[in-house]
């Protein structure tokens, strides 16, 4: 006997994500979820933008997701930024952050005072794209050492992000990397994505990232 069900597999995650947005809308806290493959420079970019956002008077908090270690959280907290670490190995070594771990992490901040909360997701271009974190916007970081075809290989990731940061442009003179091909490929997947080029090392483009945040405050 066949029984029809028709239930979304990620319904619990999606419901909690909506709850997070309701909550953060109430407090006018902008929540941004940053994703990328491992080593493209998420934490290095944060190390550059966090002090600048603080200088401008914004209260910023960071939720750090990693499978293991608190190394990234330490790097952020060295900048005197409140940071909450989520290690997914406690949840079975998950490759992504689901809304069920974001909600309690958000509650560690005084949201009434927070202007911005940045989620640094687990480094991975597949799984995190699938799970709504309750963020208002998704950012993807891709670095010049990764290959121009990444958007075509991971279309969902580039489809769910509204803002793209092409990092490590300081390395361009030493690489056979065609940045216009990368942009063409991003365009094929998500023609509406806003893109900036940056280097966390030379701080090129960092100001543009700050502008993006300021333009999207609630």
């Amino acid at each position: 006997m066949k029984i029809n069900i028709i239930r979304k597999v990620l319904e619990v995650n999606d419901r909690l994500a909506d709850e997070i947005r309701e909550k953060t809308n109430l407090y006018k806290t902008l929540v941004v979820n940053i994703m990328s493959s491992p080593g493209s420079g998420k934490t290095s970019i944060l190390e550059k933008i966090l002090p600048l956002l603080t200088e401008k008077g914004y209260n910023v908090g960071v939720i750090e997701g990693d499978i293991a270690t608190i190394k990234d959280a330490q790097r952020i907290s060295n900048k005197n930024i409140p940071v909450t670490q989520i290690n997914t190995d406690k949840f079975g070594g998950d490759c992504h952050l689901g809304s069920e771990v974001i909600l309690p992490a958000l509650e560690t901040f005084d949201l009434e005072k927070m202007d911005i909360v940045i989620i640094e997701n687990v480094g991975n271009l597949v799984c995190p794209a699938e799970f709504d974190t309750g963020s208002d916007y998704n950012i993807v970081v891709i670095s010049t050492t990764e290959g121009e075809d990444k958007p075509l290989k991971y279309p969902l990731m580039f489809r769910v992000c509204q803002f793209g940061i092409i990092n490590k442009i300081d390395l361009l003179p030493y690489l056979d990397f065609d940045i216009s091909e990368l942009k063409t490929n991003i365009n094929k997947i998500n023609p509406n994505m806003e893109i900036v080029e940056s280097s966390a090392k030379t701080v090129d483009g960092i100001e543009k990232i700050i502008n993006w945040f300021e333009n999207h405050l609630k």
Binding site: I3, P155, K188
Partner: peptide
């Protein structure tokens, strides 16, 4: 993966199938 209208070149595209994930029965 090519999310631009082949006919008119518009980028205003809706994905009407391919993102879903559900238990049917």
């Amino acid at each position: 993966p090519f999310f631009i209208c082949e006919k008119c070149g518009s980028t205003n595209i809706e994905v009407i199938s391919g993102m879903e994930m559900y238990i049917d029965s």
